[in-house]
Amino acid sequence: MTDKSMTTIDQQQQYEQEKRKQEMKQQVITFALMIIFTIVAFGMVMAELPKLFVIPIMLILAAVQVGFQLYYFMHMSHKGHEMPSMMFYGGVFAAFLTILALVVLVWW
């Protein structure tokens, strides 16, 4: 009986190990994409493209890169991250208001 339950645990562990291995591969791909985004951002600035074109694209690249970091590297895409997401996005919302307020105060 105990032997049988042990093999189930082993199988379960093997399955989870395999799953993690797949996930690790995805994370390396994510990393490669992040490197590419960074190079594109630096490249656009060095190529001296028009400011109004570069700045929005750069900010979008940064936002996507941060999304990769949060969802893949920090595992926010995994189950059980509902409360953490809520708390973190609460912070992001307050951060947005802070930046908006400071920038509007100066530029108005």
Binding site: P84, S85, M87, G91, A94, T98, I99, L102, V103, V106
Partner: peptide
């Protein structure tokens, strides 16, 4: 994660100040 939310606000205030 709650703390990281707070850190985000902290850095936002510094970013806002810098932009200004």
């Amino acid at each position: 994660w709650f703390f990281l939310g707070g850190e985000t606000v902290l850095f936002a205030s510094l970013f806002g100040t810098y932009l200004a």
